[in-house]
């Protein structure tokens, strides 16, 4: 490896969503994290995306959510008010050891992404029966 190689920026990982023009903004969507006995529920408010464009990835200790809203105004519409700006939603979560990496589920409904993270068997509360 030459010195030039070392100086190179790391290559961008391929991703479904990239901002497409300068007026698109990045949003850190608001989340609720709820713990239950057996799992964690993460709810992310991200209105205006298609289910197919949601990119949910687990990379050892991080869970990453990305999605692009797309631009709805095409053609000759005259905009009287514009508050919904084409955006890329992006948020990362650190996963603790207690989370079962193989059982992560995502569901998108009414603009809210709900991610369910199952806990490992070993950390689930267990009731002990007394004989």
């Amino acid at each position: 490896m030459t010195r030039k190689d070392l100086m190179k920026r790391p290559e961008k990982k391929e991703s479904v969503v990239q901002p497409r023009s300068y007026y698109e903004r990045r949003i850190v969507p608001p989340v609720d994290i709820i713990e239950s006995d057996n799992h964690y529920t993460v709810q992310v408010d991200m209105p205006g995306v298609n289910k197919e464009s949601i990119d949910l990835k687990v990379d050892s200790d991080t869970l990453r959510v990305r999605a692009y809203t797309g631009d709805y105004h095409k053609g000759d519409a005259k905009l009287h008010r514009r508050e919904i700006i084409p955006s890329v939603y992006e948020r990362e979560f650190q996963l603790g050891k207690e989370i079962d990496r193989s059982k992560i589920n995502g569901e998108y409904d009414n603009g809210v992404l709900t991610i369910t993270l199952q806990k490992n068997e070993s950390v689930k509360p267990r009731e002990i029966h007394i004989k």
Partner: peptide
Amino acid sequence: AIDIAEYE
């Protein structure tokens, strides 16, 4: 947030 777009 709200968008108001006018078409023909």
